[in-house]
């Protein structure tokens, strides 16, 4: 991102932008980007919508975020609602709220606190932790979850694969495949668990 034309931009109020490259991007209020956005850092409060891929070094978001494309970050801290129609990937992702990822949600270190109904197709990474914060409807639905350390609560999944798998309260998993450790809360429903060598 050594583009000399990339600048710091601050957007307040309700506005629209065609997207592009930025250094530090700050959105206070409501902003729709009509194209891909690439920036060093994005801080958002309010609503951010990107019609294209969003590539960010550091993302801090409070409020509502919609990405119609892939979201690629280094680190992200999101509080609120997030929708990604492609993959959502990063090194360290901390998500609090409700989120919808149509593709893969992947990070080295993924921490999720559920506040509402969330859905993701696949989830993968080194350490995956899902916790429920509050809300009756707070649960995560996924097809495949794969990680080295997988620690879940209130998650419904077809398959969970991992080296260490810990399933806590409210988990419903069709099949667990683990290498080293598998722990299961008495409240978790697992149809079958297989140890692989």
């Amino acid at each position: 991102m050594a583009n000399h034309s990339a600048r710091n931009v601050r957007i307040t109020g309700t506005s629209e932008s065609s997207g592009g490259r930025f250094q530090r991007l700050t959105v206070l209020g409501d902003c729709t980007f009509h194209g891909a956005v690439e920036c060093k850092s994005l801080r958002g409060m309010g609503e951010v919508e990107v019609n294209g891929n969003l590539t960010v070094g550091g993302l801090r978001m409070m409020g509502n975020m919609e990405v119609h494309g892939n979201l690629e970050v280094t680190t992200a801290n999101v509080l609120g609602e997030m929708q990604v129609s492609g993959d959502c990937t990063g090194d360290v992702l901390t998500l609090r709220g409700a989120f919808n990822v149509d593709g893969l949600l992947s990070a080295d270190d993924l921490r999720v606190k559920l506040y509402g109904p969330s859905r993701v197709r696949d989830m993968g990474g080194a350490s995956l932790v899902v916790r429920k914060r509050y809300g009756k409807a707070a649960e995560l639905v996924a097809e495949v979850i794969e990680g080295d350390e997988v620690n879940l609560q209130f998650t419904t999944a077809e398959v969970v694969r991992g080296r260490r798998v810990v399933l806590g309260r409210g988990c419903r998993v069709k099949r667990v495949e683990y290498q080293d450790v598998f722990e299961q809360n008495s409240d978790a429903v697992v149809e079958e668990a297989v140890q692989l060598h």
Binding site: E72, T89, G90, G124, G125, G147
Partner: peptide, 11 residues
């Protein structure tokens, strides 16, 4: 290799 590595390399 581990899941973490594989996913990291994919990313």
């Amino acid at each position: 290799i581990s899941y973490g590595q594989l996913y990291r390399w994919k990313r």
